[in-house]
Simulated assay, not measured.
Amino acid sequence: MNHGIKKDLPGYSYLMMAGHICTDISQAAVPALLPFLVIDRGIDYAAAAGLMFANSILSSLVQPFLGMLSDRKTMPWLMSLGMLISGLGIALIGYLESYWAIFVSVLFAGLGSAMFHPEGGRMANRVAGELKGRGMSIFAVGGNIGFVIGPIMATAAVSAWGLKGMVVILIPVLAMTGVFISQQKHFIQYTSASNLKDNSLELVAGPKDNWPGFAKLCVPLFIRSIVATGIQVFIPLYWVVILMQTQKLSSMMVTVMAISATFATLIGGRLADRFGFRRVIYLAFGTLSPLIVLLLLIQNVSLATLVVVILSAAVYIGYSPSIALGQKYLPNQLGLASGITLGLTVSIGGICSPLLGKIGDVFGLTAALYVLAGIAFIGFIGAFLIDET
């Protein structure tokens, strides 16, 4: 069985990446749709931020529990069901007129994401065999690729067919759901073989969970989530309201940020292997506040775009090292660690986004972004609490 795992590792690692892509396509569509919803549905900034909240709140509450459950019982079907629910939630948006109906649909999509990530992160760790860093890096990049494709698909579909065109998101989702369903037996086999190996190692080495170290890691991860969600919500709106660009160009900024994030995720893992986890995270948080302030001082669209590219890279360069470090802290709770580092710490930004949206409504987008710069500085301080091992 172990020989089979080593032989099939690349294929199954990339399969997990593909599932992550299809799940996060749905999540990534939400910020790209906000400018269209603001104009076409007449919602305000707080309501737009509220949709990010809807995409995150249920996911935040459910994911840690699903992670703990997956540590006790193998449930690979959660990945297939999660992908399907997430896609359906976004596809329905174009057929709903009421803001609260849209809110519930986005909430539904968030639930699907919550179902996929804990089991997906746990399974990615298992199929990686001894190559944990490589396997988790491949899985994490899947999320970034999803956030590249999602806005492109959303912008193209809405531009061509209106908001109802979002139904096209179901094409890749249904295809990948079918593939995952066909592989259920193999997922169970991988988990069973890995569990046997883990049990034999525990008899010899007895790995312990480092909860204090994990808790320290979560502090900057929570801050990073708030900053990441903040720029996803406000950068497209900033392009329309402050820089006077079109809705299409503002939505495409989500894709620009996602492309930058993808390369940063790949580079971040390599930098962490060479220089250490903490140094990479210090570098990321040390640049966030200055970059946000610099953006607010620039009126040239080209220069502003360059700053946003660097800003997005700074937000994501510590992403995959944080996931791997979190699983290293909790070797006996991989599902829970994945549910928190891949889910809860990401979703917390959506929970806080309505408050930032309210600041934007009352004091303007510029004020909201200055507040975001202050929050990023708090994250820089929190990064110093992280243990290297």
Rank of each mutant, 00 (worst) to 15 (best):
S322Y: 09
I340H: 02
L291Y: 02
P354C: 13
S289G: 06
I348G: 00
A324M: 14
V308H: 09
L306M: 01
P290T: 13
Y282T: 04
G276F: 03
S353R: 00
G269P: 12
G360H: 07
G343C: 13
I359N: 08
Y282N: 12
V301K: 08
L271H: 03
F285T: 05
V293K: 00
L330H: 01
G349N: 13
Q299G: 06
L306I: 07
G286T: 12
L288R: 03
Y316D: 04
L291T: 00
A272M: 05
R270A: 12
Q327E: 10
K328Q: 13
I359F: 13
A314S: 15
V301S: 09
S312W: 07
V346C: 11
F275P: 01
G318D: 03
F285E: 02
T287I: 11
L336Q: 04
I348H: 08
A304F: 09
L291G: 05
L344A: 08
D361S: 15
G357S: 13
L295P: 07
T287S: 15
G335Y: 07
G349T: 11
I298C: 12
L295F: 05
S312H: 01
G349W: 00
L342A: 08
L342Q: 01
F275A: 07
I348R: 04
A337D: 03
N332V: 11
G268K: 01
L271P: 07
F275R: 03
S312G: 14
V308K: 06
G339P: 05
L311T: 02
S338A: 10
R278V: 11
D361I: 10
I310T: 02
T287R: 13
Y319R: 07
I359S: 11
A324R: 04
N300G: 12
D361L: 13
V293P: 06
A304E: 11
A324S: 10
G276I: 00
G349D: 00
V309K: 07
V346H: 02
